[in-house]
């Protein structure tokens, strides 16, 4: 188990030895501000909550998380270091988990740096801090699902740009499957149960609950099982494709 942590630490420090970390964090915070205050009409709403702030997270992650995950395996494959990593005494499971955790921790750092947002609402009014905490937790959980998808796709290719684009598309499908855009398309002619199943796959369906401060077991189970599924696929893909 300690190997997981050692791999995660190396990967995490990799973000900070290159400009990726700083660029990401600055853009993430900047866009969060823009979305919340301008697009989300934070002040005009006159409510001391962070619902608009969290509401934009699925879209923000869609654009930014693939930029974090695209290098995870693609870079190792391109540089050939995957051969080095996988001939060290670590199991595939430890390697996959280590890399995933590194990115997740990094996302947590970026997310925690949005704390001025929380300070702002507390200065302006009396928000329900329990709801805000729950929302942070849910947002991080959702980020984990994006990261697991991105990590898996990154194992498919040596090319980081391809990894980025495919990850965005797959995440978009997961997002939109709960949207009227997709659901209306199905609801006229498919059985209700199928529509429910499709909408049941969406990040938004689950994240909506969480961003209102309601954390249900099924939301957690949904995101956690999504993470486990994609990480498992990740390990299998590397095992199959490491030779080419």
């Amino acid at each position: 188990m300690s190997s997981v942590w050692i791999i995660a630490k190396r990967e995490l420090s990799g973000y900070f030895t290159t400009p990726i970390a700083y660029v990401f964090i600055v853009i993430f915070l900047f866009l969060n501000g823009v979305f919340t205050f301008y697009l989300g009409s934070f002040f005009e709403r006159g409510q001391a909550d962070l619902i608009t702030f969290f509401g934009f997270h699925p879209w923000l992650y869609l654009a930014l998380i693939p930029a974090l995950t695209m290098r995870l395996w693609a870079e190792e494959r391109k540089a050939g270091t995957i051969e080095l990593l996988l001939t060290l005494p670590v199991s595939m499971f430890e390697a996959v988990l280590g890399k995933f955790l590194a990115t997740w921790i990094f996302a947590a750092i970026a997310l925690s740096l949005t704390f001025p947002m929380w300070l702002t609402v507390n200065y302006l009014g009396q928000p329900d801090n329990g709801v805000i905490l729950a929302s942070y937790f849910g947002s991080l959980l959702m980020a984990g699902a994006y990261i697991a998808i991105g990590s898996c796709i990154s194992a498919l290719t040596k090319n980081q740009v391809i990894a980025f684009v495919i990850t965005v598309v797959i995440c978009l499908i997961f997002l939109l499957s709960g949207f009227p855009l997709v659901l209306d398309f199905f609801s006229g002619w498919t059985p209700e149960i199928l529509v429910r199943a499709i909408s049941g796959l969406s990040f938004l369906t689950y994240f909506d609950d969480i961003s209102k401060g309601i954390i249900e077991l099924r939301d957690i189970v949904y995101f956690v099982s999504l993470i486990i599924f994609w990480l498992f696929a990740n390990a299998v893909l590397i095992e199959v494709k490491k030779a080419d």
């Binding site: 190997s3 050692i6 791999i7 190396r10 420090s13 990799g14 030895t17 290159t18 540089a79 050939g80 270091t81 051969e83 080095l84 001939t87 060290l88 005494p89 670590v90």
Partner: peptide
């Protein structure tokens, strides 16, 4: 094992890299 072409993590220093390998090796 020294793989063909000696692939390494270019962003790391030799010190950090050897530390990483040593730590993974227990």
């Amino acid at each position: 094992y020294l793989p063909e072409g000696a692939p390494l993590y270019p962003d790391m220093t030799p010190a950090a890299f050897l530390h990483f390998v040593g730590a993974v090796r227990g």
